[in-house]
Design a binder for these strands. Structure first.
Length: 275
DNA sequence: CACCACCCCTGGACGC
DNA sequence: TGCGTCCAGGGGTGGT
């Protein structure tokens, strides 16, 4: 399930194969996966046909492939993936492939998303993405600073985990890294966000940055589906302290970890270490 | 306005 | 083996 670390690892892995390459052909296998901001444009143009890729940008969990004239925003949702394959290299699975780009070196980029919670959005420019899309997102979680997090948490009485999952509060944290960051800071996921103390918010901001940075270095977390641009799984799932470990001993104090539900999400915490 | 439940979707796990 | 049921969750939406 791609959260910020998986999307950032993907972005870094796509720079070398994509930047400087020209898109010489696109196939949209499933039209409803492309949700164009500008519906008057034909889909080939929205999908960067004929464009040279100049950069890859990310905010939170959203990736943007920047062409010279247009840009394409990619959201992976739960099961989305972007795979780059050199000429002749095959995909592990070809079902649920919704879009394919052919590049001028004979390689191709493939968007696959079995559950279709993800999608593709065409925009005229980075400025349009920032104005129409990223303006409703909170600050990027990879660089979140304590004062900004403290202020955001202070504005809401929701459970702190619900606030962390809200992309308008903080962009990029999903279910895995919310639980891991709260455990690292000793904060109970159901604690009201506005009663998180200043020093706790400071430590939480640091934990979020550290957890995300280490997850990126580990190539992200692969629970079931996630693969990077080259088809490799991540390794950070081996480092998870609490996510997916309900009933197992807390790695710090050996108390059995407790599973519950917060904001419709499976949530695991240590009843001894987190309050 | 703030918050929350529901819904979209598919594949894998599990029970019988 | 096969079938039915449940569950995973990011994010939009509509209800409270």
């Amino acid at each position: 399930m791609p959260e910020l670390p998986e999307v950032e690892h993907l972005r870094r892995g796509l720079i070398e194969p994509l930047v400087g390459r020209r898109v010489v052909g696109v196939t949209l296998h499933r039209r409803d996966v492309l949700r164009c901001a500008d519906v008057s444009k034909r889909h080939r143009s929205a999908l960067l046909n004929g464009e040279t890729v100049v950069a890859l940008a990310r905010h939170g969990k959203q990736l943007v492939i920047q062409g010279r004239e247009r840009v394409l925003l990619v959201h992976l949702g739960m099961t989305g993936s972007l795979a780059h394959r050199r000429r002749g290299e095959r995909l592990a699975r070809a079902d649920h492939v919704h879009a394919t780009w052919r590049l001028d070196d004979g390689s191709r980029l493939v968007f696959r998303d079995p559950r279709r919670f993800g999608g593709l959005w065409g925009y005229a420019s980075m400025e349009a993405v920032e104005a129409e899309r990223w303006s409703s997102l909170g600050p990027d979680a990879l660089t979140i600073r304590a004062p900004a997090l403290r202020a955001a948490l202070h504005r809401t009485s929701r459970p702190v985990k619900a606030a962390l999952l809200d992309q308008g509060v903080l962009a990029g944290v999903g279910n895995i890294y919310a639980d891991e960051s709260l455990f690292a800071t000793g904060i109970h996921p159901l604690r009201q966000a506005d009663v998180v103390e200043s020093d706790e918010a400071t430590r939480l901001a640091g934990a979020i940055r550290r957890v995300l940075r280490r997850a990126i270095e580990g190539g992200g977390s692969t629970i079931r589906d996630y693969q990077d641009a080259g088809g490799q799984p991540g390794s950070y799932q081996r480092t998870h302290a609490v996510y997916g470990r309900a009933g197992q001993p807390c790695p710090r104090c050996c108390t059995p970890l407790v599973g519950t539900r917060v904001a419709q999400r499976q949530t695991v915490f240590c009843p001894q270490c987190q309050d």
